[in-house]
């Protein structure tokens, strides 16, 4: 057996101990948590500014908020809600890993639970949002 294939065999059969964040679900959930977190942060900055226009005048606020009410933004809102729901559910998973005695043991199962709950919640939101987008197209 060559060194390379031996290394490959060892990689596929053993998992390094105590490395929750190296590879597989532990790493990818961390990557997704960062990316969604940064995206949500920048949306939050804009969202506070657009909401602040409500203090200027009803006319000004309606003009600003109407930019959220076109089909392109409607699709963007699906992305935003998807990012927020993932960040929320995975955040609860992180807390469980930190505080629940069996959290580390079940972190993989909890990741797939996060994905499953995410799919269910998005299955509730996406059809509802598509109806809103269609009504925006029709004016």
């Amino acid at each position: 057996m060559s060194v390379a294939s031996a290394t490959r065999a060892a990689k596929s059969t053993t998992r390094p101990g105590g490395t929750l964040y190296r590879g597989h679900e532990g790493m990818w959930s961390w990557v997704l948590h960062r990316i969604t977190g940064v995206a949500i942060f920048f949306f939050l900055l804009v969202h506070i500014l657009d909401t602040a226009v409500v203090r200027i005048s009803p006319e000004a606020y309606n003009a600003v908020i109407s930019s959220y009410q076109n089909p392109l933004m409607g699709v963007g809102e699906i992305g935003l809600v998807g990012a927020i729901v993932f960040h929320a559910l995975n955040g609860l998973r992180i807390i469980a890993i930190d505080y629940w005695r069996k959290g580390v043991k079940y972190q993989r199962a909890m990741f797939w639970t996060v994905i499953a709950v995410w799919v269910v919640l998005m299955a509730a939101f996406i059809p509802r949002q598509i109806i809103v987008i269609i009504s925006e197209v029709q004016g």
Binding site: V54, P58, Y61, N62, I65, Y68, Q69, G74, E77, V81, I84, V85, A88, G91, L92, A124, F125, R128, Q129, I131, V132, S135, E136
Partner: peptide, 25 residues
């Protein structure tokens, strides 16, 4: 925040007319 933001999204995007219903009123 899980409670506050998911509640915020539900009231503003799911109920009524969704994002289309948001205006000054």
């Amino acid at each position: 925040l899980v409670v506050l933001i998911l509640g915020h999204l539900f009231v503003n995007l799911m109920l009524g007319e969704g994002v289309k219903g948001i205006d000054f009123a």
